[in-house]
Nucleic acid binder design. Structure first.
Lengths: 348, 348
DNA sequence: CTGAAAGCGCTAACAC
DNA sequence: GTGTTAGCGCTTTCAG
């Protein structure tokens, strides 16, 4: 979004005069109305004239100024996609899962003839995600990740900002979310670990985040199904940063708690944890079985290939776009819960 | 970009009237001029009035319509980032290298207070990459990948479209490119393979693409330095698709040519090739040493960890943005050649 | 200090 | 069929 100091260093059109409709009109010896009509293929204009004008425009390299057109027509085909960043670390946009999601959304939007405006906001200021809409640049917002700011999102929805969020479905929710079935995902992961004979299953993830909380719920349910008590010592609030996995394992070791498996809430977490374990000659999956979450591309190629819960990213992108368009058209679209899937590879 | 049939299914602002400056003005009992001035912090307006108006605007949730403002001010802080897709396969935007690059550019743009408009074009119609600029939506274009359409890009540059391309520097080039030093990268990869005792080094990559051609040049130079003849049988025009690696290896095997190493022009190619080799019990690096290109995140976590040539993506994003801004300001910026780096891991 | 009026580039009644 | 005119939401001379 435009910064506070726009005025100061704004890029003004230092460019040499760019062609306008009036120029084309003059050159064609007609009025701008005629040019406008010709270019928009109006049946009101003579075929011959239309051809002449389109040709002229083409040869001049003239294109209608979309912004002016949009202003006049009060229309817009731009959707803003907002990716929050962690305000404290202000880390780069590099998480493969988010990037894939972006790619998927970009494709869906392109297919439907929408432009995509990408912006980033501090995860603590999610409310500013609506800026692109408030300023009239976009007709709606797709927010990737709800963090812990359910309230801010609800406020935006109450303000009638057309927004769809990738995340967990929460009680009292005024905005539409699309997300994987995290509870089921967490359940499948944990259930699988128990089924292969593991009992002391660690959980890596920040339960403050709604999606993680739901995965945790699935984790608890699976344990309880098998009559295993949840051991709080085994639950580590790992972050999604690069160092998350090793830190979490260290923490676990520091707590001196025994574990023969771990369920990590992202593949990145899982892979960094595995690498850290291997550095200590702890073998995966023999000593510690691991299940990740996301099924990013890396998971398939990792060694050993990562057992994980797949989130259907391609479907997610389409669902997000569809849901947003529905919201914009005033349809009360239901929150989407996409099926997560257990992908068994070699780490569990 | 907007599709041909915009009119038909265009999303018109069905939204309930959104607040305008006139509304704020009426509510504040002043003219729109005053509101405009107050909101833009003009010293011309009374402090008290300014405060009153800003407060009112805030409480009403009013924000200036940026599009209208831009039209009036003839300014714009949007940069279009264009990612070509292969027209034949129309594959999804999923290549990790491109995605990382996108992330990096998004970050640079955000840091400088620019918005990013993401679009995709058919790689055979690269000229349409300028659309966002032609229609006045963006002040410039960053194109990721030049494919084989040097000519189209030159034409755009001749038309004074502010564009910067991620790719290879070519002779007679009118547009600015930023790219890794591909020749040096190709050289380092091949040189390394020879240095560890390999002689029959296959090359995987489509030489039609300028960047690949330069890597090939480096490959040839390294071989020649060591007095090894280039064997055309070892050169396979692999595509960057998912199946590229296995297809290329098959092709090589079909040609019945001996090879004890391979230099793949992307990590994706390298990893899929390695997996295919392993399926046939050909061990890497013992039987075949492999060097990739890009150093995507996957490379580090792959098994065995991939030896590769790193392209400095974070720097690339910054360089692209800087170069584009320079072009826009009319500065004749020199093409950027970023240092590639050999990262030795386990596959060679 | 504030308001009236013109105009950014375009489209759509409404005239002719 | 085509031109004239008004106006999308905003900023900025120019008067007062």
């Amino acid at each position: 979004m435009a910064p506070k100091n726009r005025k100061a260093d704004s890029v003004s059109s230092a460019e040499q005069q760019r062609m306008q409709m009036a120029d084309v009109a003059r050159l064609a010896g007609v009025s701008t109305s005629t040019v406008s009509r010709a270019l928009s293929g109006s049946p009101l204009v003579n075929d011959e004239t239309r051809h002449r004008i389109s040709e002229l425009a083409r040869s001049l390299g003239y294109t209608v100024n979309i912004s002016a057109q949009n202003l006049r027509l009060k229309q817009n085909r731009t959707v803003a996609v907002v990716v929050p960043y962690d305000g404290k670390t202000r880390q780069h946009l590099s998480d493969p899962f988010f990037l894939s999601m972006l790619g998927s959304i970009a494709d869906s939007l392109t297919d439907r003839g929408f432009d995509m405006l990408l912006s980033r906001v501090d995860s603590e200021q999610l409310y500013s995600a609506s800026q692109a809409f408030d300023t009239g640049r976009a007709i709606g917002i797709i927010l990737i990740g709800q963090w812990r700011h359910h309230d801010q999102l609800n406020q935006m929805a109450a303000r009638k900002v057309p927004i769809v969020v990738w995340g967990a479905q929460l009680p009292q929710q005024l905005y539409v979310t699309i997300g994987s079935d995290n509870v089921s995902g967490g359940f499948m992961a944990t259930d699988h670990l128990v089924n292969i004979g593991r009992k002391d299953i660690a959980f890596f993830g920040d339960i403050q985040l709604p999606e993680v909380a739901q995965r945790y719920e699935g984790y608890c349910r699976a344990l309880s199904k098998h009559g295993i008590r949840v051991n709080p010592q085994l639950v580590v609030p790992a972050s999604f940063l690069e160092t998350g996995g090793s830190q979490a394992v260290s923490e676990l070791q520091h707590r001196q708690v025994r574990f023969d498996a771990l369920f990590a809430c992202s593949d990145l977490l899982a892979t960094t944890a595995i690498n850290f374990l291997r550095e200590q000659k702890i073998s995966v999956p023999q000593d510690v079985a691991v299940v990740g979450f996301d099924d990013i591309e890396l998971a398939r190629y990792f060694h050993p290939p990562l057992t994980t819960i797949r989130q259907p990213i391609q479907i997610a992108g389409q669902a997000l776009v569809e849901a947003l368009l529905a919201v914009i058209e005033g349809k009360r679209s239901t929150p989407g819960l996409l099926t997560a899937e257990l992908i068994v590879r070699s780490t569990a």
